[in-house]
Structures are given as structure tokens and as C-alpha cells.
């Protein structure tokens, strides 16, 4: 069993609104999430799931509303965004670097976990491809590498946007167990997914943005 996360707090979203090209994607949104909880975002395409995740990451500014982390506005807590592990539509890996170089870069840039690069490579099944340029990987393999970010760092807040796109069944099962470990350590997770995800045994809240 891994150590509990040290940096955790409640996330509160109040009266959040997001506009795109003067069209309201959502407004008056209230969400709160505590450690050891999962928030599952649902809603049809274009309902603003990705926009909400990007707002939570701080990439996008909300058009209205406040987001607090432990009762402090996220803009006044620099540690908030440093504590996020985000896997979005874009993988965030460099095509010109090898698999191993990409992993080492992820580790060196953040609060690293204790895990060895070699062990990560083995667990996600890319050990043989360690010295292959990421450009030559398949879409599924690239996705694995992007998700390996979750293992390389010690962040308690995970934000995952369609994490399991083009992954094979075995890898999905592996990352599901990783999510369960993460929650057990006191972590938080917000995700969207069109795939069925086995989150049994976890405290999962559903939020449908289409309504």
C-alpha cells in the first residue's frame, strides 16, 4: 500500500459559467468534491465537459463563478495547479523523444513519485519500446505513455479527459486499478469517458452537463 497524499483539500465550484463565441455552454454550475471521491462528467458532445476540465486546470478562465481549493480561490493557491495531473485529448508527449526520455522528462518536471522509470515501463507494457521514438508508437501506445504521467508524479488531483481512448482491455483494467489505488490514498479524480469504466467500490458522483 502506498503512502497517503499529503496535499489534499475540498474542491468547490460555485455558480460557474462558460461561454464560447458568446454561446452559453453551461451556467450556474455548482460542484463540490472531497478527497477519496470521483466526479464523473456526462453529457452529449459540445455540452462543455472538456471546457469544464480545462477551466479546472486553469487553462481556460471561467466567464463567471468561483473555484476554491480548501476555501481559497485557486488563483491564490499556486500549489493547486502544481498538484494536478492532467491527461487531456492531447497526449503531451514529444514525438522526437524516446519513450524513456519522455517518462524521465515527466518525472524531472514535477513532484516525482518514488517509482522507477523501468518499473513504469514494465507495468504499462512499453519496456521493449523504451528506446523507440514516440513518433513510431501506435495511438494506443501513445495513450499509455500519456497516462503513465499519473504514475510518475505524486499529485493528489487527477483530471482525465477521455483517458481510455484506443486502449486495449488489459491496459484499461490496469489503469482502473491505478485509479482505485489513487482514491484509496486520499486522491481526487474528475473524468469524462465514453467507455464503460469499472469504478466499483468507489464513491462516484455523476454530473450531467446536458441538463
Amino acid at each position: 500500500m502506498e503512502k497517503q497524499y499529503l496535499f489534499t483539500a475540498d474542491l468547490n465550484v460555485k455558480n460557474l459559467a462558460c461561454l464560447r463565441n458568446e454561446q452559453v455552454l453551461f451556467s450556474g454550475l455548482n460542484v463540490s468534491l472531497s478527497p477519496e471521491n470521483v466526479l464523473f462528467l456526462e453529457g452529449e458532445n459540445g455540452s462543455g465537459k472538456t471546457s469544464l476540465l480545462r477551466i479546472l486546470c486553469g487553462f481556460r478562465l471561467p466567464d463567471e463563478g468561483d473555484i476554491t481549493w480548501g476555501n481559497q480561490s485557486i488563483s491564490s493557491v499556486p500549489e493547486y495547479s502544481q498538484n494536478i495531473s492532467y491527461v487531456g485529448h492531447k497526449n503531451g508527449i514529444k514525438d522526437e523523444l524516446t519513450v524513456e526520455e519522455n517518462l524521465n522528462l515527466m518525472r524531472s518536471m514535477a513532484t516525482a513519485s518514488d517509482i522507477e522509470t523501468e518499473s513504469v515501463l514494465k507495468q504499462i507494457g512499453l519496456f521493449k519500446q523504451a528506446d523507440v521514438l514516440s513518433r513510431q508508437l501506435s495511438a494506443g501506445q501513445k495513450r499509455k505513455l500519456a497516462l503513465a504521467r499519473l504514475m510518475m508524479t505524486n499529485n493528489s488531483f487527477w483530471i482525465l479527459d477521455e483517458p481510455f481512448t484506443s486502449l486495449d482491455k488489459a491496459t484499461v483494467v490496469f489503469f482502473e486499478s491505478l485509479i482505485k489505488q489513487h482514491i484509496a490514498r486520499g486522491g481526487m479524480l474528475i473524468l469524462t469517458s465514453h467507455h464503460d469504466i469499472d469504478l466499483s467500490g468507489l464513491s462516484v458522483h455523476h454530473l450531467n452537463l446536458s441538463n
Partner: peptide, 17 residues
């Protein structure tokens, strides 16, 4: 451009530095 397109830029904004 490449950092923007492959998502590295997003990751960079989440760093301590």
C-alpha cells in the same frame, strides 16, 4: 507550435516553475 499541438504546453503550465 509543436508544444501547443502535442499538449506539452498545457503540461508546462501545470509545473512548479
Amino acid at each position: 507550435r509543436s508544444d501547443f499541438e502535442d499538449g506539452s504546453l498545457e503540461q508546462m503550465t501545470l509545473l512548479k516553475t
